[in-house]
Design a protein around this nucleic acid. Sequence first.
DNA 1: AAAGTATATCTTGTATTGCAAGGTATTTAA
DNA 2: TTAAATACCTTGCAATACAAGATATACTTT
Lengths: 109, 109
Amino acid sequence: MSDTTQMLKGILDGCLLAIIKEGEIYGYELAAKLESYGFRSLSEGTIYPLLLRMQKEGLISATLRKSTAGPKRKYYTLTEKGEQELDLFIVRWEQVSSSVDNVLSKRGI
Amino acid sequence: MSDTTQMLKGILDGCLLAIIKEGEIYGYELAAKLESYGFRSLSEGTIYPLLLRMQKEGLISATLRKSTAGPKRKYYTLTEKGEQELDLFIVRWEQVSSSVDNVLSKRGI
DNA sequence: AAAGTATATCTTGTATTGCAAGGTATTTAA
DNA sequence: TTAAATACCTTGCAATACAAGATATACTTT
């Protein structure tokens, strides 16, 4: 297990939502995009199950499209529920990350 | 389950290390300190098992002392290994949190 | 003395989730 | 026809926050 594995729990889903909000995107491309944002290479065993879960929860919706090279791609877009969930995620993230920053810079509130 | 539960995974241990580094402290007091830093009230079922785990791993060491009011307190201090682990945590945190911030502010690297 | 309250710690079991490992299918190039 | 790149999925494991419940001490109130 990677040393950042635990730290990614509960934030990956929000990050996926944020990226999908930027525009329709498929899983394989998403992995590359995450890396461009600074995440260490994430396994497909992480991303695909997560996308399926979020689709089941109605946060994203998918449509299959032919690819120029390779099998069909599954393009995802945000649902309205997904946008709401993203907003909630951002609130949670700001609350938690500022708390951690407070601890690390040793000042209470 | 709280909405920030998953998000706390992999960061609580680092935060405890950072607080213990400030000075000897016991579990019950730690819970209050975390709240003062902005964390929502953390269960004792979270903190005590975590402290025991970190002690087992040799990151912190404990000594029992009498309390003025109540049962004995278990005071924790950082070991050298704990300081090293804290340093590693900070690197991980900065790597991950900046990645998330990149995603949320929609800019690649 | 007895009962209640605040302090202080621990244990057991559950839910969630990242991820490794392995599998399948399609298109193009060597 | 073989290889490589693309693209997706499934199963099972490991790690951890936390709810729920138990225990014990000291002080205060009745």
